[in-house]
Design a protein around this nucleic acid. Sequence first.
DNA 1: AATCAGATTGGCAGCGCTGCCAAACCCTGT
DNA 2: ACAGGGTTTGGCAGCGCTGCCAATCTGATT
Lengths: 338, 338
Amino acid sequence: MNVHEPERRLVTLSDVARAAGVGESTVSRVLRNQGSFSKRTQDRVAEAVARLGYVPNRLAGMLAGSGSTAGAKLVGIIIPSLTNIVFPDLLRGANAALDHDGFQSVIGVSDYDPEREEALIGALLSWRPAGLIVTGLEHTAGAVARLRASGIRIVEMIDTDGDGLDIVVGFSNRGVGCDSARHLLARGYRRIGYVGHDITRDLRAAKRLAGFRETLREAGHPLAETEIAPGPSSAAAGRAALGRLLARRPDLHAVYFSNDDMALGGYFHCLAEGVAVPGRLALFGFNALDIAAAMPQPLTTIRTPRLEIGAVAVERLAADGPAETVDLGYELIAGATA
Amino acid sequence: MNVHEPERRLVTLSDVARAAGVGESTVSRVLRNQGSFSKRTQDRVAEAVARLGYVPNRLAGMLAGSGSTAGAKLVGIIIPSLTNIVFPDLLRGANAALDHDGFQSVIGVSDYDPEREEALIGALLSWRPAGLIVTGLEHTAGAVARLRASGIRIVEMIDTDGDGLDIVVGFSNRGVGCDSARHLLARGYRRIGYVGHDITRDLRAAKRLAGFRETLREAGHPLAETEIAPGPSSAAAGRAALGRLLARRPDLHAVYFSNDDMALGGYFHCLAEGVAVPGRLALFGFNALDIAAAMPQPLTTIRTPRLEIGAVAVERLAADGPAETVDLGYELIAGATA
DNA sequence: AATCAGATTGGCAGCGCTGCCAAACCCTGT
DNA sequence: ACAGGGTTTGGCAGCGCTGCCAATCTGATT
């Protein structure tokens, strides 16, 4: 509809200035509500902006303002996936805080691929953001070098088990695994299995499993069996994987899942096969999905402060505080399945 | 860690040019792999870039390139929510296509608020994107004016029931409602109810309901009862709402839900209350969530081409084709609940 | 050796906006 | 009428990069 028009040049700030009969910098000041100007000027500028349908060019603004404080109102965010609702939630939390501070975000999705993350870091840095929020503590050497060289604030979110580059906001995934194991042990479960998805890519899941396994071992009831579904987590994968696990080890008392999606699938398997939960088999998830809480038997799981992580990440980025690790903790939800 | 350093100026293209002993435009050409240059030059530039750790400044690049074809490699996307997995899926589809064409995206979330959408349109336009992808066909007058004035390509996605501004990619939500009703009627269900979430905000859900209701009425079996849960859709809301609906109308044969989240909740209600599905009560959802397919009884629902919508939206935006409506259709999944 | 098309290169004017600074203005008080 | 201090204002030089164009170089051809 528009593309073929005779190259109508867009309205610029200078057009507005001319139309309002004031100088360019005056328009700029009025639009950013910064510095001082008279009411009369303000009205004239507002009128001209409305009449001409002026839309400021942020590109130019950020370029001109770069170097100064007000310059960058942009945050880059890299998440590993959009498939798992966890990450949209993180974005949601970040977005709310971002809006609040007048920031905008540019988002990259790495598909759990470190190489891709490195490339995304480069791409996002080229926007000259005020800060970058990435997922997890593990990055390629190249990625770390780029982050370091960028000179901007970095937030690594979700995971606190390790050393961060700058700010770290999250919780201990290892701790989650330990506490999950302790809960199952406390409830008397002894022969315990694990059903997970591809852990070589999801390092946080691997850390949870490590904590879980170690706690069980220390208690003298080592992890009896594991079943890893290829590909990303999903209810279907969880259902199938639990089926395979139980085929090998029908004597298990409880199963720990890499997350609620998988656990939900496991629950459905039990429902379909008539396996009594938790009487015959206990199920334990991770992430406290809404759906898992609405089930006839609410899933026993761990709630993580997803929205809060996103919000705090943005907040710290904007705050110019010291490099530090913020542990937002987690909460065990004792449902009806374990 | 970085903020307090002595304002080290970032490496610019001109630094690279000097270091490589070539002109600025040569560096620019090499970096964009455009125009011609010798192998020797390319190597020298590559070396300098690596040695200096140069990161191009996209802001400057886009500003300088604006007006030309190659200029804008940016697409703005506005979605109403991140809570429902549908929208991340749309983003996922768009992202894949975007990467393919070397585009980047800037995302805005409107929270189903038309005013907020209008504001976001302004915000995204100020990035001077090559195109904008928005959700649905209904916008405020101001939003329409801005979109029209922008002179860029617009894609309205998900809904094809109405007139679009430029390109429309989606399916008929009304048609979904009609076909859902036809399916239930064909299976012999007569006393049919509806459980939905706040429809004043989710206009697509309202269109589905309208189609559903009309088809039932025309068949002589008008919608028996509706129950609207306040707030966004969720399994918990669906479960509670079905409870309320059945309390009023225990004689219903089937219930149509505004989407799978709600339907899942409804299914859990039945499970918990011992209502036989579909013998005693049939359930019909919308969106074909993975989870719904993994249940012991797969949910009867409608699969929508979410990834494809996102991908096609981007594709059309880049293609510079005519303004048109692309109907990607949908598919009825005859599960075990209706 | 002169010629010529094509490949390769560098210089420089913007892109639209903001920061800085000097100029103009305003209102007191004297 | 004039100085003094604050408030408003406009001009203009960049921000870092790309587009354009003229200059230079290359190798083959006559």
